Simulated assay, not measured.
Amino acid sequence: MPFIASFEASDFVSTIISLLVAFAMGTAIGAERQYRQRTAGLRTNVLVAIGAAQFVDMAMHLSGPDGAVRVVAYVVSGIGFLGAGVIMKEGTNIRGLNTAATLWCSAAVGACAGADLIAQSVLLTGFVLAGNTLLRPLVGALERLPRSEESTEATYGVSLIVPVARAAELRSKVSAVLEAAKFPVDEVELQDRPDGSSELLATLVNTSVRVAELDAAVARLRHLPGVMSADWTRSAAD
């Protein structure tokens, strides 16, 4: 039988050790995630770790280190699809990035175990747990720090209400004024309004600006012939 002919006790023991280490390290990471009630909890992290370990271990036994390197590359890219499944966008807020990153690290822990890098697998687990626990107070402290609008990235837009007849002419002037004020324009959209006027919406390339300088630029736009009103808006960066 092929199984009896290919079976080697030493290889089998090596596989058992790799899977046990991956299981234990995945449990340590997953337990912390489960305690925090994250989307990917105990079982998910364990399964990712032992799955990655088995793929790498199998490649090691079939074609040696070269084969294992190729499989690790596929594990790294493949785990991205699983991580994408736990990332959710709610309006301007994105949730699940940390969970996805933890799954990625669990795969790395399992890959180390499968490649018989046991010490590295344990060490990486320690760093993952430290990142998810010891850094939490620092994150909380940073979140509570007062900050100005100028210190945070955002998407800025400039809105002008103009007559329909002069919309095309003013569209180019808006870009010229903003660029002269060192506010590069990403795009200028033209929208018709129910009252018969048009609205020019200029989205700025800058993700961080000085409010006083932007106020000055918008003030110059208000004085352009034909501009009925001008203002700027700020929204959270993606």
Results as ranks from 00 to 15, higher is better:
Q54R: 12
G67F: 09
N93H: 14
V76Q: 05
A101C: 11
A9E: 15
A53V: 14
L97E: 08
L117E: 05
S18Q: 10
M1C: 14
K182S: 15
M60G: 08
S151K: 09
D231A: 08
A108M: 08
V218H: 00
L201Q: 06
W104N: 01
A9P: 04
I161D: 01
L135G: 03
L142K: 06
P225Y: 03
S198L: 06
E32F: 00
I94R: 09
T102N: 05
G26Q: 02
V75Q: 12
S18G: 10
S6W: 11
R95D: 14
A176W: 03
Q120C: 03
L214S: 07
V13I: 09
V185G: 12
G114V: 08
G126K: 15
V76R: 05
R33E: 03
I94D: 13
E187I: 11
L134T: 02
C105W: 10
V76F: 01
G114R: 06
L138I: 06
T203M: 04
I29F: 05
A101I: 12
S6I: 11
T102Q: 03
R95I: 13
L221P: 01
K182G: 10
A167N: 06
A230W: 04
E153W: 04
F23Y: 14
A31S: 14
M60T: 14
Q191R: 11
M88S: 08
S208W: 13
L42M: 07
D238V: 13
W232C: 08
L135W: 02
S77N: 14
L123M: 15
M60W: 08
T92R: 11
R33H: 01
I50H: 06
Y35W: 11
F12P: 02
I87R: 04
G131N: 15
L138K: 04
T99Y: 13
L214W: 06
D116G: 06
A24P: 09
